[in-house]
Design a protein around this nucleic acid. Structure first.
Lengths: 201, 201
DNA sequence: CCCTAAGCGGATAGATCATCCGATTGTGTG
DNA sequence: CACACAATCGGATGATCTATCCGCTTAGGG
């Protein structure tokens, strides 16, 4: 699957047992994140049935493990971003992309902290975040050129705003279904404000 | 100043040395919060020049200490809320109140965690939060009755949204001045969306 | 089959947290 | 003022959590 080496072909492949342990650890971490249990590496080790040293060797910090867990989700977002760029309607493209982004953050607890972190542990995370940022910038610029969004919001505001919405949803709370609904309402409201406001012209 | 007993007249006053230590501890905590240093009670004790036991006796948990630090700020907000209720323009009143709220959260690091916490440690905090909530509800209802805000946002959304904005500002980062500016931009955008949107009628 | 290096795993040192209790000090009383 | 007693102090201490190090095991090429 998604072992580190699958991204960097220059590294010697992991030994079979190492790969197995890597999978176990990430699977356990995924489960913990889904249950909102904080990632403590000692704990992960015992749950995965491996030694503490093994976990620390693969992932130097809880953040590194969390980023690994988040990777697939980030990749899916980036992929959708590419599709959005192909949409001919600039506003619809931006709107759809942002909806997916918040929905992902609200659905997957691993995403929010990774998105909000100023500095990344893994190069892969940096790479993916950069890609997402550039897609967002492109979509926003296009929408702005089309006169569809107000001019005082910059590309650098997109990530913070999406994180803010996700955070607000968490504060609001509720069942998973509620949360998605809340996320939609909040984002819809924000987008209404994001639109260029012709009534002020 | 604001010792616990000043709010509950039924309790015997603190002994002189106890009051002095209480002040020292809160002052140190205030300073730590302002420097974004996490509140660790052992650490607070040594910085305040008191024993660990003393700190733990006054504040059972870091949250209790944080809530105490935040109290004066919450009181100021509640006071402003009362003034806002006196404003005859429903929209302006709501807008002003919300601006103050985010500004406070962005300015004072003790506020955000206290506002976002689902459950309070101190009764006083619960009381103040309830008061703020009811002011917010009143302002929102009034604005809605005046047809000034969209109907699909409830009073229960106000706190989460304000926390979300503050969080977004933190993710965005920058100097204190930048942060206040960012907060204003974000809130202005959100408020634009919060307004009733007549062009959809 | 054997050798080597990659990988394993847990004992353990180090840091942090929170409690408990003997020593100290403020305060009301005679 | 001297005393008694209760309130408060403070840090030694045990519990918990974090992360490293190193002797043992095992995969996999020759």
């Amino acid at each position: 699957m998604g072992h580190p080496i699958s991204m960097s072909p220059m590294t010697t492949p992991l030994r079979k047992d190492a790969a197995r342990n890597w999978d176990r650890i990430v699977a356990v971490a995924r489960a913990l994140v889904d249950q909102d249990i904080p990632l403590q590496l000692n704990d992960v080790a015992s749950r995965a049935g491996v030694g503490v040293g093994t976990v620390y060797r693969h992932f130097a910090t809880p953040e590194a493990l969390l980023e690994t867990v988040a990777t697939s989700c980030l990749e899916a977002l980036a992929a959708h971003g590419q599709q959005a760029l192909a949409d001919t309607d600039p506003w619809r493209a931006l709107e759809g992309f942002l909806f997916r982004t918040v929905e992902a953050q609200v659905t997957d607890a691993s995403l929010a902290p990774v998105a909000a972190a100023a500095t990344d542990t893994l190069p892969r995370t940096t790479e993916l975040k950069r890609a997402l940022q550039s897609v967002g910038t492109a979509l926003l610029d296009r929408a702005r050129d089309a006169g569809a969004v107000r001019r005082d919001l910059a590309a650098a505001d997109l990530v913070p705003l999406m994180c803010g919405i996700a955070y607000a949803v968490n504060v609001h709370g509720g069942t998973p279904a509620d949360r998605i609904d809340t996320a939609h309402r909040y984002l819809a409201t924000l987008l209404e404000g994001l639109r260029a406001t012709p009534q002020h012209a």
